[in-house]
């Protein structure tokens, strides 16, 4: 039940941001599906990887692949799908907890949680960059093979 709620709200939240960022109407559904997919992958790799940082990294890889494919299909910049699909992964909750520790002057917990937030954001960014690099290499190889 919680899983279903999370998936549905991941979709709705991404849809909300897609609307907020003024995405074209025919791109709304695929953009919101990206959010669902990102969270779905995060949940799927849960039994294999316990730590959140690699889980976010893998989810980010998947969502970037999805965004790049959709960008080709819909002929629009990948950013359009990347930004709205990454919304459920954005560590807003973790950031909030970090600041809660700061306001209540629990500095050790603040540092730990702050590092965690940064690592999560880094994992998302890293996943995006890695998948983009892989796709770039694939594209170059494809061009090379076509020439030969």
């Amino acid at each position: 039940m919680t899983i279903l709620t999370q998936l549905v709200t991941a979709f709705a939240g991404s849809l909300g941001f897609a609307l907020l960022f003024n995405i074209r109407r025919d791109r709304l559904f695929p953009a919101a599906m990206g959010g669902l997919l990102a969270w779905g992958v995060y949940l799927l790799v849960g039994p294999l990887v316990a730590w959140d940082v690699p889980r976010f990294f893998i989810a980010s890889l998947a969502l970037t692949l999805y965004a790049e494919i959709m960008a080709r299909v819909k002929k629009s910049p990948a950013t359009v799908f990347l930004v709205s699909a990454s919304i459920p992964l954005i560590p807003g909750g973790s950031l909030y907890t970090t600041m809660q520790y700061a306001v209540s002057a629990q500095w050790e917990a603040f540092t730990t949680q702050g590092m965690n937030t940064l690592l999560l954001a880094g994992a998302i960014a890293g996943g995006m960059l890695c998948m983009m690099a892989v796709l770039h290499v694939c594209h170059r190889l494809y061009l090379l093979l076509r020439q030969a």
Binding site: V83, A125, M128
Partner: peptide, 15 residues
């Protein structure tokens, strides 16, 4: 908070 927080800015800046 998710509305106001610059989460995308954070991720994009790292990118």
């Amino acid at each position: 908070i998710m509305l106001l927080i610059p989460g995308i800015m954070l991720t994009n800046s790292l990118r």
